[in-house]
């Protein structure tokens, strides 16, 4: 991730409630979200494997990235993912399908629309479904998942517009 994009977006995964369809004991949500690429979530059941990310409020989503390591995980590495959005479990709609070939490191599985004027996805609920693994593997390994929201909608003092002269900005907030 470049430094510039880091300034324009913010990770909001810690504001969400995470759940998984299945997990091997000791390889669950905690390992998926611990910022450690040596630990991973391992599913333990039939496909599709699901990651459910539920927000308290409608969250604008700019990007979703996952960390996988084909060299270590081999047949556990996901090859086809579906991303679904909605308000609860019952009204999910598929918004994107991403196919991966031998991914290694951070992969962005959902991108913001390239047209800057287009509306961002805003949703309460995001589900990442792993539909297939490499070499027809059954269970899956994902090491990290990150959800990003754009920064420009946020952090404004007293919901003021962004002023462009310092004389104005000085009065726009106390510190």
């Amino acid at each position: 991730m470049s430094a510039a994009s880091h300034l324009e977006q913010r990770e909001v995964g810690d504001q969400a409630i995470w759940s998984l369809s299945t997990a091997k004991p000791g390889n669950g949500v905690e390992q998926l979200r611990d910022d450690n690429i040596d630990t991973y979530w391992q599913s333990d059941g039939p496909q599709p494997h699901l990651i459910n990310i539920q927000f308290h409020k409608r969250m604008p989503i700019q990007e979703i990235s996952i960390y996988t390591e084909f060299k270590l995980d081999e047949s556990y590495t996901p090859s086809k993912l579906s991303i679904r959005a909605g308000t609860t479990f019952h009204d999910l709609q598929e918004i994107h399908v991403e196919e991966l070939t031998e991914p290694s490191g951070w992969v962005t599985i959902l991108r913001a629309p390239s047209d800057a004027n287009a509306e961002l996805l805003r949703t309460h609920f995001i589900q990442v479904a792993i539909l297939a693994n490499h070499q027809n593997g059954r269970d899956t390994h994902i090491r990290q998942v990150k959800v990003y929201t754009p920064r420009r909608h946020m952090g404004q003092h007293m919901s003021l517009p962004e002023f462009n002269t310092i004389a104005f900005q000085q009065y726009a907030c106390l510190r």
Partner: peptide, 8 residues
């Protein structure tokens, strides 16, 4: 007149 460069 006070803030001639402020877009808002």
């Amino acid at each position: 007149e006070m803030a001639p460069k402020e877009g808002s």
